[in-house]
Design a protein around this nucleic acid. Structure first.
Length: 858
RNA sequence: GCCCCCGUGGCGGAAUUGGUAGACGCGGCAGACUCAAAAUCUGUUGCCUUCACGGGCGUGCCUGUUCGAGUCAGGCCGGGGGCACCA
């Protein structure tokens, strides 16, 4: 018996599928559609194990749904704009476009060795003008619809990448790519109005019942809806430097308004800025605030500091109450109105501030068990529920009632309004980079900002750029930005900023529906294919990409591109691929591929030095604990890699890649090959007569076969691939021990083999195709329907019943299914183990749960 | 600080959703085949105790609900993730 040659066989079947264009699809209205999409890769150069896991999971679903009779769209493309291409240009003097397309070519070949059921005819690369021209058109449409605006604003500036970052891209005060401390700069920005849909984006999360709860919670928190009120505090004496006669604050606790003892402005508030012009001390205080870091530790340790401006405001509900106005370092300009009122009794931070500056502390909410006569606030603010006190017309109300009542009052006095505040902010998309989609506007000295006429699209990136100077090459280019104004014809300049690369990935799933259409999307095609039925990718995109895509879909709907709200009806977030880490004596990280084993199986360096084994963490270049998928596929074949990916760990959890695990998967591939190909000649012919009767062994095998169909189907539907794998091992084990050569047994064996091959087909498609052919089939397995379990065969005739005494297992008995309680009771009590356990004691109660358990209480 | 998730053998993980805990795989041990090794096959493998039959313990810890708890409830401990001077 020859060994299974994975390499040869895999190449062969990949060729067959390709020649038959098996996975190319069109809108076939006679079948239900199913759109499976994995998050498309950035063309970094080579595929990594995370890709292998992602695309293996997606391919199992795609092939399974196809076998279930769905018209499956399963496309692939490239998220091709981005900074690494520019870095490569600087380091290797290669134009970013060339570098990107070369990487795409390599990675496309690598992906093809995985045997994925992809419709390659739909391949797209976002850096191609045929793709990004549509994005430019969308921008112009968004502009007309008021979903894009330009804003001079404080931005997060990444000093290493020389670009602006969105809030979502700043993690702990650092750039998400460069990890550099982010600085604040004031720049004009193009901004997508994501807050237009804040409510919808939040409310519709509840319709996404096939999304992980975790992701919905994360988006919920990110959008951060707070109900409260805007309240205006008029100045006692209007400050001379401003026309403004009041301070407007946002609060979620208007019920505590009578507990107010101060107001505080952000150091960046316009009133503060005005004040600083006449008050050196205030200016010094503000400068001090701006010097403070924005990192997590800095914020954590920072003392709550204030500067008393000497200004006074009147309480909105009682003009006789006057409150001091501070500038305070903890008030953020970006949230609410950039000003607050402080109620020390019921907010810890306000309390700390009041104690520090000797302000009054009036309790206005009485805890349920406390006595109004002697209730005082000590060192802890009371933030819980209770009855309102010391608050005139609000007294005795609950917190919630008081909120409603006080908002009514404020609104009738025109001193405030009930409002909803979001944490979510609009999405700034301008990036000072070359390798991105140009923003299609022109700056004219006379006409201001003029959109590029649609007939002039696309605004194409120039190829001849230089990276010799830091900053944006588009800005440095000799001719590119110089143009004429579309409105007046005078000399004008192009916008040199490009879009944030998250823009391309916000609509690529729609482009896949009609990738070569003249317009961005063909209506028939998007109506047929969208939404994506199953989207699969890493949880790291829970907020960024997935929120942007939800926004984009709504914006595109408003502009008439498509007709849906939610782009992804099902989402699955897979875990990371981890590996042990290795260090030599000097602490240098060592790649697993460079290690050898000593006599005891311990890893050593190639020169025989000892190696410290560290815990298993996500594969990363910096820790060098990566395994190259190309090498694994070259050695063991794609099926082995795919099988191991699915085997042990549930797909949503992090998994550990181990050599032993791969070996195990590889052994199973060989075992299946031997098991089935050794026996094919003995089996009855395809479509041969069904035996009139089956013996016990054949019946047992058939029951196992059909139960396996039911179990594996169920497991795949639920994304529990590790369980599907276990069930397939069990069927294989049963087949290994089925040695009878009686005609009925051989018939059952052919049935089992064919079921087995079809069930693992989505996971190991090449081996399955090969064995399908060896079993004598002329057609392709990929065109074969999914097997159906025969319920009449899976029903058990007998069941093993556990017998417990006081809840502890003492015996088991085999009974006929649905056996009468009386005979079960009798059999149970006769068991020696049961009698031993009962002993002299009295049987008080005997519980029989049909076909499940017997419990005897003594 | 707030919100969410997770704790099961040496390891990855199963457990029909309240009914025989440890399926399946990895690893280990023993054996067969072999001159030998690899490969393959067979058996065994939660812990403690016993020559054995058997018995005891066991799903992070403590309480509770129940005939019965890995599963439900309450409280701790530990790990991971998200958000965070957000008013």
């Amino acid at each position: 018996m020859s060994r299974y040659n994975a390499k040869e066989t895999e190449t062969k079947w990949q060729g067959v599928w390709n020649d038959a264009a098996c996975f190319a699809v069109t809108e076939d209205r006679s079948k239900p559609k199913y759109y499976v999409l994995e998050m498309f890769p950035y063309p970094s150069g080579r595929i990594h194990m995370g890709h292998v896991r992602n695309y293996t999971i997606g391919d199992v679903i795609a092939r399974y749904k196809r076998a279930r009779g769905f018209n499956v769209l399963h496309p692939m493309g490239w998220d091709a704009f981005g900074l690494p291409a520019e870095n490569a240009a600087i380091e290797k003097k290669v134009p970013p476009g060339d570098w990107t397309y070369e990487n795409i070519a390599i990675m496309r070949d690598q992906l093809k060795t995985m045997g994925l059921s992809l419709d390659w005819s739909r391949e797209i690369a976002t850096c191609h003008p045929g793709y990004y021209r549509h994005e430019q058109k969308m921008f112009l449409d968004f502009l007309k619809a008021g979903l894009v605006y330009r804003k001079e604003s404080w931005v997060n500036w990444d000093p290493v990448d020389h670009t602006v970052l969105a809030n979502e891209q700043v993690i702990d005060g650092r750039g998400w790519r460069s990890n550099a401390l982010v600085e604040k700069r004031k720049l004009p920005q193009w901004v997508f109005k994501i807050t237009e849909f804040a409510d919808e984006l939040l409310d519709d999360l509840s319709t996404l019942d096939r999304w992980p709860e975790k992701v919905r919670v994360m988006q919920h928190n990110w959008i951060g809806r707070s109900e409260g009120a805007h309240v205006r505090f008029p100045f006692v004496n209007a400050p001379g430097y401003s026309d403004t006669a009041e301070i407007e604050v946002f609060t979620t606790r208007p019920d505590t308004l009578f507990g107010a003892s101060f107001c505080a402005l952000s150091p960046n508030h316009p009133l503060t800025t005005g004040l600083c012009e006449n008050d050196e001390q205030a200016a010094a205080f503000v400068a001090e605030c701006n010097r403070m870091g924005t990192s997590e530790e800095a914020i954590e340790k920072a003392e709550k500091l204030g500067y008393d401006t000497g200004l006074r405001v009147r309480h909105p509900l009682d003009p006789d109450i006057e409150l001091p106005v501070f500038i305070a370092n903890f008030v953020l300009m970006e949230y609410g109105t950039g000003a607050i009122f402080g109620c020390p009794g019921h907010d810890q931070r306000d309390l700390d501030f009041a104690r520090k500056y000797g302000l009054t502390v009036v309790p206005v909410v009485l805890p349920p068990q406390a006595d109004a006569a002697d209730f005082e606030i000590g060192n802890e603010a009371y933030v819980g529920d209770g009855r309102i006190i010391n608050s005139r017309f609000l007294n005795d109300l609950t917190v919630d009632d008081a909120k409603r009542r006080v908002i009514e009052e404020l609104e009738s006095l025109q001193a405030g309004t009930g409002t909803i505040q979001y944490r979510l902010r609009d999405w700034g998309v301008s990036r000072q980079r070359y390798w991105g989609c140009p923003i299609p506007v022109i700056h004219c000295g006379d006409c201001g900002i003029v959109p590029v006429p649609e007939s002039d699209l696309p605004v194409q990136l120039p190829d001849d750029v230089s990276f010799d100077k830091p900053g944006n090459p588009l800005d440095h280019h000799a001719t590119w930005k110089h143009t004429t104004c579309p409105a007046c014809g005078k000399e004008a300049q192009r916008e040199t900023d490009t879009f944030d690369t998250f823009t391309e990935s916000s609509w690529y799933f729609a482009r896949f529906c009609s990738p070569r259409a003249e317009n961005a999307m063909d209506k028939d095609a998007v109506d047929y294919w969208l939404p994506v039925d199953q989207y699969i990718g890493g949880v790291e995109h829970a907020v960024l990409h997935l929120l942007y895509s939800r926004f984009f879909t709504r914006a595109l709907k408003r502009c008439g591109y498509l007709n849906l709200d939610e782009p992804f009806s099902g989402l699955f977030t897979q875990g990371m691929v981890c590996h042990e880490t290795y260090q030599d004596e000097s602490g240098e990280w060592l790649p697993p591929a460079d290690l050898q084993r000593d006599g005891g199986g311990n890893p050593i360096t190639s020169s025989g030095k000892p190696v410290t084994v560290g815990r298993s963490i996500k594969m990363s270049k910096s820790k060098k604990n990566t395994i190259d998928p190309a090498e694994i596929i070259g050695t063991y074949g794609a099926d082995t890699a795919r099988w191991f990916m699915l085997s042990d760990s549930p797909p949503e959890r992090d998994m550990e890649w181990t050599e032993a695990g791969v070996e195990g998967a590889w052994r199973f591939v060989q075992r299946l090959w031997r098991l089935i190909s050794e026996d094919t000649e003995k089996l009855p012919a395809i479509g041969g007569p069904v035996p009139t009767a089956f013996g016990d062994k054949a019946s047992d095998l058939r029951r196992t076969t059909h139960k396996t169909i039911a179990d594996v189907t169920d497991a795949i539907e639920q994304f529990r691939f590790n369980r599907a794998v276990a069930k397939l091992y069990e069927l294989t084990n049963s087949l290994t021990s089925a040695r009878s050569e009686e005609p009925d047994a051989l018939w059952a064996k052919r049935e089992a083999f064919e079921v087995l091959v079809r069930l693992f087909g989505p996971m190991m498609p090449h081996l399955a195709e090969e064995l399908w052919q060896r079993l004598g089939h002329k057609g392709l397995l990929v065109d074969e329907a999914w097997p159906l379990a025969d319920d009449t065969l899976t029903a058990e005739e007998t069941v093993t019943l556990p017998i417990q005494v006081n809840g502890k297992l003492r015996a088991t008995i085999d009974i006929v299914v649905d056996e009468a309680d009386d005979s079960v009771r009798e059999a149970a009590l006769q068991q020696p183990g049961v009698q031993r356990a009962i002993g002299e004691k009295q049987v008080r109660k005997l519980i029989i749960v049909k076909n499940r358990v017997v419990n005897i209480v003594v």
